[in-house]
């Protein structure tokens, strides 16, 4: 696991994040508890086609479903106004997975939760959000494994 120290994190966020210290503190708390999430600066493409370098937390979270634990791949994008706006959250299916749309997930994998809708700093934070996701996904997983490829149908030949 790549170790991202606080200085490096602050440097990554220095250009545009208005509440950098708050954001760094929250990211550190999350990556301390969820070792399979890591902070990554990457280009986020908005609905209007514009893109911006934003901080994301990408990786997997452990979700318990029917007695087994699955590492569900997610990506949380932090706007430069974070924590005064909620993160934009997606499930990121691998090629062997398919999205299960529902009231919490759309066809693009975007995650909708009351916790995000009602986001308000400082009552809301990334660590609690992830805990909520883990509970919700444990009841309704956002991804399932794709069916294994069936052998091609062989027409009967006399």
């Amino acid at each position: 696991m790549a170790v991202v120290n606080e200085g490096a994190l602050k440097k990554m966020l220095s250009k545009q994040y208005k509440y950098r210290d708050l954001t760094v503190r929250e990211i550190n708390n999350v990556i301390f508890h969820y070792k399979d999430l890591k902070p990554v600066m990457d280009a986020y493409v908005f609905n209007d086609g514009s893109s911006r370098e934003l901080m994301s937390l990408a990786g997997t979270v452990p979700v318990s479903y029917r007695g087994n634990v699955y590492n569900i791949p997610i990506c949380l994008w932090l706007l430069d106004s974070y924590p005064y706006n909620p993160p934009i959250c997606f499930v990121k299916p691998t090629s062997t997975m398919m999205i299960k749309t529902g009231k919490h997930i759309d066809a693009n994998g975007k995650i909708y939760l009351p916790y995000l809708h009602e986001w308000k700093h400082p009552q809301s934070d990334l660590y609690s959000l992830i805990q909520v996701m883990i509970v919700v996904f444990g009841e309704e997983p956002p991804v399932f494994s794709r069916p294994t490829t069936q052998p091609p149908f062989q027409p009967f030949q006399a």
């Binding site: 399979d36 997997t60 452990p62 479903y65 699955y70 590492n71 062997t96 991804v143």
Partner: peptide
């Protein structure tokens, strides 16, 4: 590789 967990998902939804 960074050693993160391998993503996994429940068996196919039916």
């Amino acid at each position: 590789l960074n050693g993160g967990a391998v993503p996994s998902a429940p068996p196919t939804y039916t």
